[in-house]
Computed example of a mutant assay.
Amino acid sequence: MNKIDNKTGKRIGYARISDRSQEIRSQIDQLEAYGVDEIIQETISSVSWEKKLYKEIDRMEEGTTLIVIRPDRIARNTAMLLTVAEKLEKKGIHLVVLSLGVDTRTPVGKLVLTILGAVSEWEKEELAIKQKNGIKAAAKRGVKFGPKPGFEKEGLEMAIEMYKSGNYTVAHITKVTGVPRATLYRRLKEIGVSK
């Protein structure tokens, strides 16, 4: 691991695990071997962790270097990694990701982040194309899109039977079965039951 002498700022290691069943010691060992001044250790799930991470970043001073072992310690995906890197850059904080060889104190580290940004954009565009093609293919096979009805097939059958009995108002039928009035009338028309 290449260390860069950073006399002007603090080197803070960040180690995180999602739950207590995981082991944090290996992260700490690697951060200590790198030569950090302080280690933030967290056992926190990804649900609340992003907010906590940003609070930690907010308390860091300009010139600080944040060091992590892997990108998934501070980001769920490449897009989030770039967001974190941008937030750090705005505060004048450097980022080192040991497993990627990213060190924003160097031109090469900044280049790697730029490449990651390009890859992230490409992945998003590819995913959008795949989704569009998948939707077209499914539509050709007759798959219907849009929200699913808020009622079961049995509910519609029950609504029809209730209507046919003549004992219930349409307002009561729709309330009990959850079948919308328009759907009920459309189905009645399809099966030849007059209103």
Rank of each mutant, 00 (worst) to 15 (best):
K136P: 00
T64I: 01
I67K: 05
I39S: 10
A182F: 03
K10R: 10
R105K: 09
K164M: 09
T43Y: 05
R186Y: 08
P71H: 11
A85S: 13
T78K: 14
E38D: 10
D103V: 01
E154Q: 10
T83N: 14
G101Y: 07
Y185N: 10
L156R: 02
P180R: 03
I12C: 07
D5T: 11
R20C: 05
E89R: 14
L156H: 04
R186T: 02
R76M: 07
K55F: 06
T104K: 02
T114P: 03
L100T: 01
E123M: 04
H94F: 11
A15Y: 09
T43P: 01
E32R: 13
A159R: 07
L111V: 06
M158D: 10
E154L: 04
Y185D: 09
R105E: 07
E62D: 04
G134P: 11
K144Y: 03
V84A: 02
K55P: 00
E161Y: 00
L100R: 05
K195S: 06
I39F: 12
N2P: 08
A171T: 14
K136R: 13
G192F: 05
A33T: 01
L81A: 09
R11N: 06
E157K: 12
G155L: 00
E157C: 00
M158W: 05
A33E: 14
P147E: 07
E161K: 13
G146I: 02
K130V: 04
K91Q: 12
K91D: 03
R105H: 05
N167D: 13
E42L: 08
R59C: 04
L184N: 08
P147S: 12
R70W: 02
L184H: 11
S165E: 03
D29N: 10
K164A: 10
R141Y: 10
I44V: 08
G155N: 15
I39L: 09
A128H: 06
V108T: 14
G166F: 05
H94I: 00
I4D: 06
E42W: 02
M162K: 13
E126H: 11
V143I: 12
N6K: 11
A128R: 14
I67V: 15
Y34P: 04
K144N: 07
V47M: 11
K132S: 15
E190L: 11
L127C: 08
K110D: 01
I44G: 02
K90Q: 12
T8V: 05
V97N: 09
L116P: 02
R105F: 07
E152Y: 12
L95F: 09
V102N: 04
G63P: 03
R59F: 07
A182C: 01
G192Y: 08
Q131S: 12
Q30I: 07
P107Q: 08
L116T: 00
G109C: 07
K136I: 00
V36A: 05
W49Y: 14
K87C: 04
P180L: 01
K7R: 10
T65Y: 04
V47C: 06
R59M: 08
A15S: 11
M158E: 15
V97I: 14
K124P: 01
I191H: 04
I129D: 14
K132T: 13
V112E: 06
